[in-house]
Write a protein that binds this DNA or RNA. Structure first.
Lengths: 192, 192, 192, 192
DNA sequence: AATGAATGAGAATTCATTCAT
DNA sequence: AATGAATGAATTCTCATTCAT
């Protein structure tokens, strides 16, 4: 049975979905093959192995964020307020619909101390994310306060994701977003 | 070879340590046996299997919290302020020195969907924790605000743990604790 | 917790029951201990091990047959016809209520080629049984015909037990008994 | 090491042989792998596990019977007498040379209550066998007598197999076959 | 005698990976 | 590229047996 050419990105997508659903360790190459419609052996034409595939997934999400989210900070036409609202809106879209965000939280925690290369990649992602948020805050607040706020915001979102996962309740994230926005508004009004 | 009696709690402790170090999936029964000095087979005397042992670990941590932490809310001689300070101090002690706290975050996320029974146990733990914090807040704030604040506080701590884990930086948690305390102070001064 | 003195025959009975229920291989020493109310280790005070216990079971059944069944052939006051009826009645009682008979069929087949000592014991039992039946037949028929009939009768009963087991239908055995008796009646009327 | 393609039927055959030799419980997957020349793990490519493999063995024997034996009843060119002789000849060939027959007796009894699915399969086999024999008898005898005779014949063969197994004596089966044939002859002559 | 913890030798099974076709 | 059989190491779990108390 000849098969269509397989886009490696298709495999990455499938892998992302199953990793999220079952966790990294609980997911077998057979599961991934199954999801893609390929057979186990065929995966090895595209990726060196499970770790390699995992790295591609992390990388893919990171790249997507770089392209779609972290660019918000550079939107010339957006006010700071608009940027923050855009970031929040994107975050909600991601966590509720795409789940790439959960991946970076859940799978990161699961694999953090398992493979050092994963750790580095997760850190790079979060550094970029923090940097993006900080850059926006820095339009209004002094450098070190912006830095602080960025760390705090991401941390708050991460906590909300954990609770959301645990209790299956999206409100945790909604409320976190709201708090972040309100804090920005009240602080920036003071600053002005 | 003499047959030492083994306290099952010893096994639970060993398991807790290795689960924390290597993660649940990455830990084999042989690892645990090794840590306890028993042979693999002997573990099955005390626990039906890996899942059962895991449940014992979760339960043991939960019980410890119930005994040592969640009772803080009932300390007759403590003011609300003192209770919150005590909770924070305990939290810091736990997360920095005992690592049982991280377990409830990291291993929870890794195993949340592995077995429904785990999910239930983790949820029970967090419900109890939230309930404890809420009870303290309720001494000063109205019921629903106390509830909100409790959820927010735990969520914030969870986020800090994720970041702390990720970047190996305890300051995340320290700052989260500080924020929680300050928020309490400023809100309660308003209330009064 | 001190326990009453344990009669080894109690253990043998329990073992018989579980062997029958679960088969020899599928039964663990723990199962037997459980049934007797003892703990695993205690069984080894009475029997050298599983094989030894099994031999005691086989032996016990054999002895019981020797005492209760195979003596029928020597009943001075019974006619041949009465002896055959008594044997059949006993057989029915055994297979339907005591199940010792099934043991000698089912467990024999399961363990026949597993432990040579079992084989010898099962053979001895069946030789005795055949001998008993033959002795009765020999009251009426010539030696070699009696021998033939005995083998055939036992064989028929064994077949019926297999079918009974397979289809959970006691009628197989009832009909086999009926055939055996009728055959005896018709043959002996001819002989006279 | 070159990777030979293995016909799953080869595995089934090997399994059949070892199951017969050592019994189901006493046979390990390693034994089977060893017999086939594969490694343990490789067996799981073809069969989900030991039970699954066992089912394939039972099924394979059943299918073989359906194809080679149970079709005898439909041989247009055979008289009833010839059909019975053919069935008997086949039975002898099977039990003496192929051993698949013993499987359906010995292993059936050993595994009857291990897994309900086995029970169902063994019953299906025996029902088919009985049906085949009954159909042949029904050419000469009334329906219900044919049914009775079929049950009796199979039961008799089963008993003979037990005795044959027990005493390692093929004569039991030979005599059972002879009896079955003679009974048919004498009854059918009466009927005519 | 009884206990029950400990042993240790396997058992079945899983799975990432390799490789001939 | 894709296939899918084969590999082999690792993993969970079982169980007859031993032994200190």
């Amino acid at each position: 049975m000849p098969k269509q050419k397989t886009d490696p990105q298709e495999i990455v997508k499938s892998a992302l979905n199953i990793f999220l659903e079952k966790g990294y360790h609980n997911t077998s190459m057979a599961d991934i093959a199954n999801e893609t419609g390929l057979l186990k052996g065929s995966l090895y034409h595209h990726f060196k192995g499970k770790e390699d595939l995992m790295k591609a997934v992390i990388s893919s999400i990171h790249e997507w964020y770089k392209r779609e989210i972290f660019t918000i900070k550079d939107e010339k036409t957006f006010s700071t307020d608009q940027k923050i609202q855009a970031l929040i809106k994107a975050s909600e879209e991601i966590f509720f619909n795409r789940r790439g965000g959960n991946f970076m939280t859940n799978i990161a925690l699961e694999t953090l101390n398992v493979v050092p290369e994963f750790t580095a990649m997760f850190r790079a992602f979060f550094r970029d994310w923090i940097h993006c948020v900080k850059t926006v805050y820095a339009e209004v607040f002094p450098e070190d306060e912006a830095e602080q706020l960025a760390h705090q915001s991401i941390s708050e979102i991460e906590g909300a994701v954990v609770m959301m996962e645990l209790f299956n309740d999206k409100n945790y994230l909604r409320r976190a977003h709201k708090r972040i926005y309100n804090r920005f508004k009240s602080l920036s009004s003071v600053t002005k």
